[in-house]
Design a protein around this nucleic acid. Structure first.
Lengths: 212, 212, 212, 212
DNA sequence: TATGAATGAGTGTTCATTCAT
DNA sequence: GATGAATGAACACTCATTCAT
């Protein structure tokens, strides 16, 4: 019978982390109070401490769980056998749908990471995972001849992850969505087509084609 | 009658902003205390309030002054008549020299901006300035035939600013410097050479050539 | 589910207001610290903020509760069928017993009221209540012929309230108690007997008869 | 030549005390800052300390100077050979003209006095002076037969001082001016006519005759 | 498990006072 | 005399954390 308990506990933790994600995103990690989180979850402040020893531990859990959603989106857009510019466009749309204009949390996290080695490591691991997904996607492209054989896929992958993060910084600074999308698509296209001069893009894809 | 002239006040503000930049970068804006800043400046806490009405106002001043350094670097690397990959490489090196691994402040700022419309506007203005510098640089390149006439220079410019910011996110997540530089160079090259298939790069520039 | 029931909260507030009354009276509202109050209650400073959002709110609550005691005394001395000079004398004694020489709080309140319209209104309401009690008392006297039919009872009532407050100002300025009592009795007697020349005071009451 | 200096100093002190009176009255002694006072005087904060060793000393000086104005009014209204109800009425009008609705300062002073024995003594002395003025005025009345020979003039005098102070408390609590004046006149009349049943008031004076 | 009252260290801010100029 | 920059001791208020129930 102690079997159900841990499951319950896990489920409770999840609900808390979810709520924390929303609260921290709205108010910022340091400004948000445990009370805010408790209220969002619908429990008492004390209850939070049954599941997380401290605010920081809750934040850590959040940092570890947050990327999961992103990974799902990555998987579902960059793993299919389709035009990569469509993938990029869809990725943008999905991310915007998922996070709205709430990019604050990412920067909250980066900001903390700059002073928290353990968080930094965790972030690094996560990015490595993202990189893996993308690299295998790009390898398929390369095999199909859309990317030059001698491309430095790893660097390009980091560059594209960086590009995405950077597009977020532009949006959080108020760059209008359409311009942000253009920059993302134009940048992404450049990253993967520049060495593809000999390869035939099955169809000429331009940011214009996929712009929403 | 002020004996010490108004310039003194400006100078004092500058010293405070400078110290605040270091303190906020080390500890984070919210965790850093006014006492920390005061100690770094070498004055009493009360003195800070002679120059800034609140911690937030000090932070705002910092946010407005911080980009100046970056603009200097931008100007001095992207305005000369030289190979743009060298510019990119030099830019990377200068930024690393300037900020070390202290990117926390950027994210602190982005994070606050996501909840502070006024700060957001200020950031936007700044980025527009950066964009101007870069666009005029890229226009020169285009005139020389290194970039295709029909390129969307504005989007490419945003993408490159975004790329840089994104590279910072990778570094703050622990990506080793050399890999970060590769990603930056590879990405930057891609952004501006992809449509230049017909144009002859005077010399084949690869990340390897300029990597430190 | 609150285990301790809401009454507890009310009770706690009362204890705090009571302590605040003593502390503010001793040190003055502005000089007294929340810590002083907390110590007097025997709780931590933070606890105070569970019940009152601010020092000012606590002061307001005090201002609203303070008159209650006075009303009790008014009721119990001025509502019975007895010689009004005895009532006045008893009132004086009860007030002195209740407030000792701690009249500071009244002036604290008046002082704040002069700059706080809401407090002013609240004070006004309270005084109107006092006036009601007194007027109905005096009406009885009038019916019995101790006060002339054409007296302006309302003005006399205000005057007597004013007289009492004024006697407090004399005491706080160091007028010895017996002299203060004489002034109060002499004044009070004058207020209500001056037009009673034809009416027979059942017994000649002089300040001397009732002076303690 | 050092003769002019002390005069100048005295004059400077006066200007400061005057400004302090206005500032303390508006904001309250404890809330007003030395900067507020300095600004009102038109000098620097530091200059204040050339004339007063501390804020408290400035307040003390104010407390000692403040009553002077009142004494002038007392003298000019209660020393002439005229109907005393007219004096009372004129006194009211002059006080209102002089202090407007700014009674805050009185209560500020009483409030401080309750905790400051030295201030208390000073207040006491002042009131004794007032009492002297009034008593001699009333003695004249008595000699003319308007007040009974056996009246306790001293108590009546205290009562009338108290009555006035009390009327101020009513006004600061928002009692409308006309009602306050009625209460004052009605009360004052009562104080001095009640024992005058045999004496002929030269003319029947009622609050109505002199009410504005 | 869950609650929420209580704690107390900590923080931004104010301001009387000082003092070099 | 006069200035105003600087000080530093307070103080109101907050909030992560604890714990009796």
């Amino acid at each position: 019978m102690p079997r159900v308990v841990p499951e319950y506990k896990e489920e409770a933790k999840n609900r808390i982390v979810l709520a924390a994600g929303r609260v921290f995103s709205e108010k910022g990690y340091r400004q948000a109070t445990m009370d805010d989180v408790a209220k969002k979850v619908g429990v008492s402040k004390g209850a939070l401490y049954l599941y997380f020893a401290s605010k920081e531990e809750l934040f850590d859990a959040l940092c570890r769980s947050e990327p999961l959603a992103l990974r799902d989106i990555l998987f579902s857009t960059f793993n299919e056998n389709r035009n990569y510019m469509e993938s990029a466009s869809e990725f943008f749309d999905k991310m915007v749908a998922r996070y709205g204009s709430n990019y604050g949390l990412s920067f909250e996290i980066f900001s903390e990471a700059s002073r928290n080695p353990s968080l930094k490591r965790s972030l690094r691991r996560t990015q490595e995972e993202y990189a893996k997904v993308l690299i295998s996607f790009f390898e398929q492209l390369r095999e199909k001849g859309f990317i030059r054989k001698d491309s430095d896929l790893r660097s390009l992958t980091y560059a594209s992850i960086g590009l995405w993060n950077g597009i977020e910084t532009l949006m959080v600074s108020g760059l209008p969505l359409p311009e942000a999308k253009d920059a993302w698509l134009e940048g992404f296209k450049a990253l993967f087509s520049h060495s593809a001069s000999e390869a035939q893009n099955p169809e000429p894809v331009t940011p214009e084609t996929v712009r929403r």
